[in-house]
Amino acid sequence: MELLKVTMESLDRQRRNRSMMIMGILTMLIFIVLVVSMNTGYARLSPLEVLSTLFGYGSAKQELILFEFRLPRIIISVWIGAGLAVSGCIMQGVSRNALADPGILGIHAGAGLAIMLFLTFFPTTAAAPIFVLPVLAFIGAGLTAVLIYVLAYKRYKGLSPTRLLLTGIAVAAGISAAMIVLTVRLAPDKFQFLATWMAGSIWGTDWKHVWALLPWLLVLLPYVFMKAQTMNILNLGYEPSLGLGIDVSREQLKLLAAGVALAASCVAVSGGIGFVGLIGPHLARRLVGPRHQFLLPVSALTGGLLIVVADTLGRSLFAPVEIPTGIITAVIGAPYFLYLMARTKV
């Protein structure tokens, strides 16, 4: 018995060390991509120019390009990637559905509908306060999540993975149809904004958007990380979780609310970027396994790396023409989703 305990402790230590090493590698990769991204764009800056500008020795033009245009966008890219990936990890863990993703389940569509209704009834897009948009997106996404939860929930069995996925796809399709109908009432400038949002182009690219998103991440990410052990237990299933003293419905609702809030606050400044919440957790699970103590932070790092790479490619591949980040992630994510569909029994 003592030998078994020592062996388990050794395996746990090895797993922890491996996970910490992977987190370190991912952090280094993000840093490298950040440096490349600061050098990349229509107005190119050499690595030496970037370095001198960061230390206050650049020209006025170089400071404008780096500090006003690129750095806010790069920071937002990392943050929304982390937020969307953690949101997807929550939804996959709570529903025990490998195909769960905020975009696929209709959360993005609900947030987009709320923003669109706001734009429809306000005279100009400039009237939309930056700090209000995440709140509006959360309200729309929250109402959508409640509808999906009610339709997919089964008494005595909890959330059915199959029902959750199919209900989310159906609700997202209905909301998307409603948004298309409402576009006929939009002025050309508002229609252009909405088209940019739906394509997944990161439109919030200044420091105001950075500060608008920061409080949501500072509150929600630590809360979710503290719930890692609860998510491990929920993965055992409805009845085993009840037997271990977990109030399953209550914990599911709290975690889903956190996941919806993360997704809504991110897409409010980034547009409807899809598949990050699907790909990020899957890659993280392959790297560190299913324990959420490691899975959640690695998902955040993986999602942040994915978005900043996609945004850098979108800005540089056909410069000065910019490809929306959502299109880059869709090119990667759609085939992966079909691959998972082929392997998953739904």
Rank of each mutant, 00 (worst) to 15 (best):
G24F: 06
R96Y: 08
L313N: 15
M198E: 15
K254A: 12
A170F: 11
N235L: 14
A228W: 03
A257H: 13
A334Q: 14
P335S: 08
C266M: 09
G83M: 04
R96V: 05
K227T: 10
A258K: 09
I279Q: 01
L244A: 08
L283C: 02
P281R: 00
Q229F: 05
I30Y: 03
Y223A: 13
A264R: 12
A268D: 09
I90M: 02
M38Q: 01
G280M: 02
D247V: 11
A109V: 00
P102W: 08
W216K: 04
A284Y: 01
L105C: 02
L11R: 15
S77V: 08
L262Y: 11
A82L: 09
V50E: 04
A228K: 05
M38P: 02
A342F: 14
M341H: 14
I139K: 03
A342I: 10
A111T: 01
R163K: 09
V219T: 11
L214G: 03
F138W: 02
L220W: 06
V146M: 12
S299E: 04
V288D: 04
M179C: 11
R163E: 12
T230C: 14
A126H: 01
L164T: 01
L71K: 11
G110N: 00
F193S: 15
T125V: 02
V219N: 05
A152Q: 08
L221W: 04
T120R: 03
V86K: 03
V132C: 00
A334P: 13
R155N: 14
R13H: 11
M341K: 15
T27Y: 07
M1G: 15
R15S: 12
P215D: 06
N232T: 12
V78P: 06
D189V: 15
A300Y: 05
G93L: 04
V308I: 15
M20Y: 11
L113P: 04
P215F: 08
Y153A: 08
L164A: 07
A330V: 06
M21S: 13
I90H: 02
G277V: 07
L99M: 10
A334M: 12
L54E: 04
K227C: 13
F118H: 03
N39C: 07
N17K: 15
M21K: 10
